[in-house]
Structures are given as C-alpha cells and as structure tokens.
Design a protein around this nucleic acid. Sequence first.
DNA 1: TAACTTTTTTAAACCGTTTAAAAGCGATAG
DNA 2: CTATCGCTTTTAAACGGTTTAAAAAAGTTA
Lengths: 346, 346
Amino acid sequence: MAEEAILGQKIKLSTIADALGVSTATVSLALRDSPLVADETRERIKHHAREIGYIYNRRAASLRTSRSGILGVVVHDIMNPFFAEILRSIETELDRSGQTFLLSNHYDDLEKQRSFIDTLLQLGADGVIMSPAIGTPAEDIAMAERNGLPAVLIARAVEGAEVPVFRGDDAYGTALATNHLISLGHRRIAMVGGTDQTSTGRHRYQGYLDAMTAAGLEVKPSWRIPGPRTKQAGFDAAGRFLTIEDRPTAVCCWNDLVAIGLMNGIARAGLVPGVDVAVTGYDDIEEAAIATPALTTVWNGQREVGRRAASALLDKLNGRPVRLSQELIKPELHVRQSSGVPIKTP
Amino acid sequence: MAEEAILGQKIKLSTIADALGVSTATVSLALRDSPLVADETRERIKHHAREIGYIYNRRAASLRTSRSGILGVVVHDIMNPFFAEILRSIETELDRSGQTFLLSNHYDDLEKQRSFIDTLLQLGADGVIMSPAIGTPAEDIAMAERNGLPAVLIARAVEGAEVPVFRGDDAYGTALATNHLISLGHRRIAMVGGTDQTSTGRHRYQGYLDAMTAAGLEVKPSWRIPGPRTKQAGFDAAGRFLTIEDRPTAVCCWNDLVAIGLMNGIARAGLVPGVDVAVTGYDDIEEAAIATPALTTVWNGQREVGRRAASALLDKLNGRPVRLSQELIKPELHVRQSSGVPIKTP
DNA sequence: TAACTTTTTTAAACCGTTTAAAAGCGATAG
DNA sequence: CTATCGCTTTTAAACGGTTTAAAAAAGTTA
C-alpha cells in the first residue's frame, strides 16, 4: 500500500501496464470496463490499480475525448435561499451523472459572469446552467454555444437567446398573492422589493398590477418600493413604508427574504406584522414556515426548476432533443399567518 | 468576427501559427507575454488571436505544466451563512490570484467528501481548503497531500493531520456568551444545538461548562439539547426547552441559526424572546443584527478565517513556508437585545 | 492440418499546449 | 574574414491518457 509514496513516482497507466506486462491500451480499456478485454485480465488490472493507488488523470483523458466532466452553474448569489434550493436539486440531479460542477456567483455583475464563462470555456466544460446577470446579451450565450458550451437558463430569460429557460410563472404568482390580500378585504396594497431591470422583476410587478386593476383598485406610485432582494433591504424598506401617507394595509413582497426583513423592521417599529400590516412573500423558502409570524407566500417550484434544468442540460449534452419553449412552472399560494385575518372593508 | 462559426474548426495555437507563418512555440510564448518574443510579433499574434476568438485550452496546458489553476473548497454546507461568509472572503482572496475554485458540500458525509477529493485529484487541482466532515481520518488528508493536493483546514481540526488549521477559539467564545448571561443575573442556563462529534462541538460545550463551573453554578443534563445547526432544529428545540422542569431563564445557542430558530419557536409559544427568555447566538451572521429581537452573539471572525486559510494555501502552493500551528482567532461578544436586561437574582 | 472465426492484445496516431535545446541571423569584435 | 554574441524563432520531445486498425492468439470447422 501507499507505494506512490515509496517510489515517489507518478502512477500512470503505463506504470500498471509495465507491472503486469500488458499494454497501456489494455489497461485503459480494462479500467473502463470495455468488453474488449478478457474478464480475467480486467480483474487483474483493476485489482492492481486499486492496490497501488492509481489516480485517473482527467485532464489527459479529456484532451483526447473532449469531454471534461465539468458543468458550470452560475447564479446571482448562492447565499440567497431561493438559489440555494435550486442548487440543491441540481446537485441531486447531477450527482448520479458523474459530472462535477463549478459554481459561481455573479452578483449581477456582467463582467464577473463573462469571466466565469471564459473559465468554463478554457476548462472545456461540457455545459452551463445559468441565471443570467442583468443585461446579459443574447450574443454572450450564443458565443458560448458556438464554442461548444451548451447553456440552459433558469429563473430569468434572455431576449433572443435560443436556449431552454426554466422558471416560475411570476406574473401569475404575484397575482395569486395580491388576489389573496384583496379577498381579505385590503384595498391599499404596496409592493416592496425587486427591480424592473430583470424579466422576473417586470413579471412580478405586472402580476400585482393586473390583480389590482382587475379588482378595480387604485395603485399609487408611492406604494412601489423597489430595491435589492435581501433581508437587509426589506428591513430598510420598513421605515419608508411606515411613513407613506395614507399607508397601505398590506404588502406584497418581492420574495421571502424581503418579506421577513420587512416584518422584522415593522416589528422593530412596534407594530405587529400579520395584525397591523398583512405581508406576503414569494418563493416559500424553508424559513418561511418558521418565521414569526409564519409567512404567507407563493411556492415557486425551486426543486422543479433545478431538476428540469439539470436534466435538460444532460439531454443536450447527450444529443437528445430539448424543447426550446420556456417552461413555466405554475406557482401555488401557501397561506399562513402573516397575511392575517380578513379585515372589514371601510 | 466569429470566424470559428464559419470554419467550424477548433481554433488552437497552430491555427494562429499557420495564419501568421510562425511556430506554435512563438504563439504560446507571445500570448503569455514572454520577453523572448519580439514586441512587434507579440502584438501581431495577440491581435490576431483576439480577432478570431481563440480560446486558451487549460487542460492541454496543465497536462504539460501540471498546474491546473483549480482549487477545491469543501464545506459542510455552503448554504449555512457561517460558511457562506467564509466562502466570500476566500473568493475575494483567490479572485486576484487567477485560480478558479470548485465548491462542494459534504453534509458531513465522509463518502461524499472522499468522492470530491478524488475528483480534485483527477482534475489535478492545485490545493484544497476544507472544513472536514465528522470522522475524517488524518490518513485521508495525508493521502491527498501525498498525491500532490496540499490541504488547509478551516473551522474544524483533524487529530493527527499535519496541515494548517484556521478556526475561532470556540471554547473562549461560548465562555464569553455564558459569562455575559451570568453577569445579567441568570443562574439556570441551557445550551441548545450542536454535537459532541466534532472538535468544534466539544469546544463550544466545554466553554459553556467552564464558565458555569467557574461561576459555581450547577449544570443539569436536561439543559443540554444537542441537535443539527439549522434554524429548523432551533425551532424544533423550542418545544423541548419550554417543557424542561424548572426551566432555565437563558439559552446559550450553538450558532445564530439555532438561536433565531429557537426565538421563533419561543415566540410561537407566546413568550417573548429577550424578555421571557434570554438568548445568545454564535457567528454573528449578517442576519443577527436584523433579527427580532436583534441577536446577542459571538463574532467568530469568519472573514479572517477565510482570508488566512486562502492565503496560507497560496503560500503552500508557491512553496513559501507555512506554519502548522493552529491559528486561533479570538472571538468577540456583540451584545444586542436578545439577551435582555439584567434580571434580579432570586 | 489448413483455413477460417472469434477473441484478445498491441502499436501508433492523436488531443493542444509547454519547454529545453538548437538554430538562424544581423551586428560587433578580433 | 571568421568568431562570438544577443536576440528571436523553431524544432521536437514531452505531458498521460484514448482510439482504432491491425497483429497475435485461441478456438472451430472441414
């Protein structure tokens, strides 16, 4: 055992070949379970390889095969639980395929995203799953694909990019939440968090607008408080929200992080979220259920997004046909305490 | 532009060499700014390379140089904000070194950790930063090093492993928190979360015990509620905590996630954390400051751990001497509302 | 035993880069 | 006119695997 340490020599195919008196071709074939080598030879080779601690050199192999076994995953921020859950399901899906994946945050910085894609190209990655940064041009994706890096998008679409996209039906989702608040008797409803610069942002806002309009309710510009999608941002927005003239009685938040931050901010100001102000989130992250009060939110099918994206990418790699159509996953409303009980209409 | 698409041929060094009537060696040297090539030649080459969209093939290069530019980072769970913050500082530190890093969770599963290390070896990674899974034998690390994969540990130590370790002084940290609670007048203090199976777990518990003992206070077995280090676990522990006979008035939690979960659980039961029960956390994650109530916690120097680990690894790669001694980072107490105001001693 | 199959193994080309050593070349010195 | 030198470029051999046509060995049939 541990001969590598004694010899101090790198162990390669030829080390095994020499020791057993066969050729490197035979060893290569045997280790990959090729039917071309006799059972007995294969066993001898595999056994010896294990014995001396042989380590397969993927770089050398991939140079010849042009398959690196590396997949890239780029998201906005892995610390965002929404992406974290997607990542987990991608991980689960890819684990059994034997691919390793390279992870990167782009923090919505286009240059960082580009440099990561460049790295993937240099490493000969087999494919990439990405939640594109704000402002990603279709050409960036086309370029990757031209250079042998097939892509699949999640969460956000890119205008003009001819690749599969997996995301939730955002407009439908915020409409669900807004209608729920309306049905509880709320007439003045704010929307906190998010930005118009992403397709997701526009869709979520649109769903809210549509629901309000359909119910014949007015929407004041001051009721829209855009911002980052973090707890901190939600917390910070509380101050501004509480001072709105003729303050709304309910808030439809961009996501759960913003909602939880906002509830914390509201509580800090001495009001009780879920009683004094109704709040809804979006994504249904794990924490939503244990927040205080438990958060009413829109389940967004993160698991599903990750799973489908991963399997679509694997299909693409293996030359199986993949539909280009945007796969819209239907969200569901999960009602908890934060949206409160019905209030009487004025 | 985009000639690669028209030709349909892979662009390599020789493509450029042929086009310009020079050898591949010259092209290789020129692209790497070697002083060996004439300025004019270099410019011609670089310009042409950009023109036709040449992509450097790192696999081929690293086959020759045996430097892959890949570093591995293995942690328990990247979605845990404690690790997430460490990752961010590692990322910052490594970004300027031009190394890309491969990330993986092991979820304390030794086999998963092994398979990731194996992948790193196969890819010829230059080094690895790891927070070892429970039960990691020193031999696993020694094996990696023997095969040219230098390692640096974070957060947890491995008995007998001769590699640098960067972690906070956990015993000192929980002692800080416990002493704080004692100084506020608490006499019955519980400890929630964590396990004895990791060095960190033992140290944190020991710090709590030491502080209690030093103050001449009794510690009942029922006051120790071990468990996972998640919000959900903290939330779940609330039920058990609230039914302890002669219930403690304060809780020293394993980390901030557990503390926040516990506070949510306590609030759900109608009690007010920070008033009815004093709670402290550990790590001082970003969320601690905006939790309700704001969490008193122990700052653990995550930034520092990540930064030092990354730079130690780079030192190791470049053959600079690295001290083996465990670097203990001194934690600091950050007092906020969750530990409440002094209570009168009975 | 020869001829033909089938199974097993091998040799050599190849993947795209790096690098030590060799070579070309104009200028300067002897 | 030749020798030496510096600068620039080229040659050719790695790096460690995979692939495939072809050779060798073993097994069948006539």
